[in-house]
Computed example of a mutant assay.
Amino acid sequence: MYRLLIPSLGGRLLRAAGRCCWVSSAPWIPGPQGSRASEVKAQPIRVPPPGRGPGLLPLLAALAWFSRPADTGEEQQQAEDAADETEAQIIQLLKRAKLSIMKDEPEEAELILHDALHLAYQSDNKKAIIYTYDLMANLAFIRGQLENAEKLFKATMSYLLGGGMQQEDNAIIEISLKLASIYAAQNRHEFALAGYEFCISTLEEKIEREKELTEDILTVEEKVNTYLLLGMCLDAYARYLLFSKQPSQAQRMYEKALQISEEMLGDRHPQTIVLLSDLATTLDAQGLFDEAFVYVQKASDLARQIEHPELHMLLRNLAAILMHRERYAQAKEIYQEALKQAELKRDEVSIQHIREELAELSRKSTLI
C-alpha cells in the first residue's frame, strides 16, 4: 500500500491471502534504473492451456509441467529419463534464483535465471519458459529496470495468450496490472490509465458473471482469489490517482479496496489496517483532517494490538495528521513512539524522515 505522507508500506492483498503474485515485493514506483538486464526475445511458440490454479503460475503448479505417457519402449523411456533429469535441473535453478532474490542478490538471481531459461528452451519445456520469463520480469521490475521488465512481462503474456489463456484470466490481469504500474512510473499516463481501468472493469464483470456459479464449476478459493485481485487493482489505481493529485477519486477506490479486505481478510488483518491508513491519507490530502484522524487512529490502535510489522510507518502517518490538526503535543508524542519503533526495526530511511518531521514540528510549535 502506498501513501502521500510516507513511502510504501509494501504488502498486497494477494500476498496477504497467500497468492504468488508480481508485484508482491516490488514498490509501486521502482527506484532509479540500474544496469539493464540482458533482454530475451520471446519465440512464437504455442503453449498448452495452463490450469486455472490461483495466482500467477505458482511454483508447484508451474513445475508440474505435463504428465508422462505410458512406457512404449526403451528408446522413449531413455528420452523421458533425460527430460526428467533436465526438468529436475531447471527446478533446482529456479529454487536457487528465488533464494537469491530473497537474499537480495539480484545479479546472482539474474545469472541463474538465464541458465534456467537456456535449459527450458533446450528441452522445449514451455511452462518452464513461461515461469522463468515471469521471474525475470519481476526481478527487473524490483530492480527498477522498467524497459526490460515491460518486455519480459509482455513476453510472458504472449506465451500465455498464445497457449489459449483468455484475457480475463487472473494471470493476465496480474501482468496487466504490473504493466500499468510500469507505465505510471514512466509517466505514460494514457497507457497507465487504460491498464488500470481494463483490470478493474474486466474483474468486476467477471465477478458479476461468476457470482451464481456453484462450487463444482468454480471453487470458493477461485472466487476469493479473483475478489482479492480486484482489491489489489483498486489499491494500485487509488495510489496512482493520489500521486496524480486526484485525492477524491483515490478515496473512492480505497473505500472499495478496504471493503474487500474487511470482507475477505477481516478487520484486524495487517492489510486491512494498512488500507485504513491509506484512506486516511486521501482524506488528509483533501484537507479533511478530522475525518482522516478517525481512520488513522483506528489503524494505529489495531496495529499496536496485533504488533503490525510496519507499526512505525502507521504511527508516522498518525503523527503527521495530528500535526495538520495542530495537535502538536500529541504529534510529538506519536513521532517519538514511531522513532522508537523504527529504531527497533533498524529502518534507517524512516528514522531519518521521522527526525526531519520532528524538527519541522518543533519549528511549527515555536510559532504559536
Rank of each mutant, 00 (worst) to 15 (best):
F66W: 02
M253F: 13
E74A: 10
S201A: 08
T72I: 15
K345C: 02
A82L: 09
L203Y: 02
L275D: 02
P54Q: 05
V294F: 01
S277W: 02
H189R: 11
R325S: 03
A61L: 13
S277N: 13
T282L: 09
A16R: 06
Q77E: 15
R68A: 05
I182M: 06
G144W: 07
A319D: 11
T72S: 15
E147W: 00
Q78V: 07
F198H: 09
M323C: 08
S67F: 12
M136D: 00
T214P: 11
G34R: 13
L177M: 14
M102I: 15
A280Q: 04
F191Q: 15
A149F: 00
S244K: 14
K206T: 13
F153D: 03
M157L: 10
Y183N: 14
G163E: 00
K103G: 00
A83G: 06
S244M: 15
E197F: 00
R52P: 13
V220L: 06
Y237H: 10
R12S: 10
D284S: 11
K127V: 15
K154E: 12
Q271V: 01
E74T: 07
S244R: 15
A299I: 09
D278L: 06
A303V: 07
K154F: 03
M232Y: 00
T86I: 15
S261P: 12
F153P: 07
L279K: 06
S365A: 14
R12N: 02
I175M: 04
D290W: 00
L57K: 01
L339H: 07
K298M: 10
L275H: 01
S35D: 14
A342I: 14
I91W: 01
F243C: 02
E221Y: 04
E307S: 13
D81Y: 03
T214S: 11
D124P: 00
G164Y: 09
G55R: 02
A285R: 06
N138T: 11
R304F: 05
I29H: 00
A137I: 08
Q122H: 08
V349R: 00
I182Q: 05
R15K: 03
T226E: 12
M165F: 03
W22F: 09
N317H: 15
L60N: 11
L361T: 04
Y159K: 00
L111A: 15
Y131T: 09
E210D: 13
K340I: 03
A97R: 07
A320R: 04
D216I: 04
A17W: 12
I45H: 01
G53N: 09
I351E: 14
Q246N: 13
D84H: 12
W28D: 01
P69G: 12
A331K: 09
T366E: 12
I200G: 04
L113H: 08
E262Y: 11
Y254M: 03
A61K: 09
Y131I: 10
K127P: 10
R327L: 06
Y196D: 01
H269K: 03
R52A: 14
A37T: 05
K154D: 11
Q186N: 09
L179E: 07
T214Q: 12
Y133P: 12
E326N: 07
S350W: 00
W22P: 15
G11C: 04
R355A: 03
Q78L: 07
